[in-house]
């Protein structure tokens, strides 16, 4: 499922990131925030009254905020972590 659909406070792992859907600089910034295939991720808050605001999520030990179009490019998976990353 996409990160946008991940229920709040349910630990998950990044399965796939569609880097082509992100601009080069946004992709780089996400990488620098520690986002990569296999990274642990947990959605914490959805901003905005009508559900159109950004998403705050925990990536590793960091809390970051991103807009929904970025979150939509990230596919996540719940369940046991695979240690390949």
């Amino acid at each position: 499922m996409r990160l946008t659909d991940l229920p709040l406070r349910q630990p998950a792992y990044v399965d796939l990131i569609d880097w082509n859907a992100l601009s080069a600089s946004d992709g780089q910034r996400l990488r620098e925030f520690g986002l990569c295939e296999g990274a642990s991720v947990e959605a914490l808050h959805h901003g905005g009254l009508l559900g159109r605001g950004p998403i705050a999520c925990k990536v590793g030990r960091m809390t970051i905020a991103m807009r929904r179009n970025h979150a939509a490019a990230i596919t996540v998976r719940t369940g046991p972590q695979d240690e390949a990353a």
Partner: peptide, 9 residues
């Protein structure tokens, strides 16, 4: 095009 919102909290 609008830029994004990517921030560390």
């Amino acid at each position: 095009a609008s830029g994004g919102f990517l921030m560390e909290m």
